[in-house]
Write a protein that binds this DNA or RNA. Structure first.
Lengths: 122, 122
DNA sequence: CCGAATCCGTGACGATACTG
DNA sequence: CAGTATCGTCACGGATTCGG
């Protein structure tokens, strides 16, 4: 794995920032977390990521496919069936995103307390 | 460190999802990455996170302060000086977010290739 | 001069209806 | 069932102005 130290997400024009913007968002995180469990059908993905609309799910999956993080498997059946799966590249992203999700779950109690204290003080 | 298995970012109404939404965004990631280097003045933060507007930086820092991830130090000077610093809780988030940033920098070449291939095929 | 508030446009997101 | 299309809404984000 070659690393390009020239690329810096903090630099405005660096292409790496477009990658950061794509992966550092809640829908991408949740989708990749679910896909980490294995190949998943569109319908099940939509059910697992509670609250996501079909439109947003489709769009996010398209973007992930375009970036080579997800592969799309279409079955010529009626009713149609489409399954999504992490690519090798996508699997390298699963760990970091899962860590973010786990951080959120593990520290929410503390965060909620902090919010209450902050809101009371003002 | 107690972990609450009941909390699940995939559940629509779970409070942990509000935490996820806050930390899984590009501005938060970049700000926390910079603050990981140490206490930083607002002006320098704005310069380091290239392209961010003053308004967005202020708002994001307020939210991070509210959640207890960042402390705000105001100096009664002219011109004014305000410095921001990660809290203990904020430092526990630095690693995961830095990993996301490093992933973006490390895999952008591959992502760009994938995008070109995808766009040519259609 | 630096930090923050105000104003306002744009784009993301959700809901609905429709097609293959 | 898996999208696509259209539209309405609203939060995000940029430019500008204000305050100290």
């Amino acid at each position: 794995m070659s690393y390009e130290p020239d690329w810096n997400v903090l630099t405005q024009t660096c292409p790496s920032r477009t990658s950061l913007a794509r992966i550092a968002n809640k829908w991408t995180a949740m989708i990749v977390i679910v896909l980490g469990k294995g190949r998943t059908r569109f319908r099940d993905l939509r059910a697992a990521v509670e609250g996501i609309s079909g439109k947003v799910l489709t769009e996010t999956l398209r973007d992930l496919e375009r970036d080579g993080l997800v592969t799309r498997h279409v079955f010529a059946e009626v009713p149609p069936r489409v399954e999504y799966e992490l690519t090798g590249l996508g699997r390298t992203l699963h760990g970091p995103l899962a860590a973010i999700g786990q951080w959120a779950e593990a520290h929410t109690a503390e965060v909620l307390e902090n919010r209450e204290r902050y809101d009371q003080e003002r």
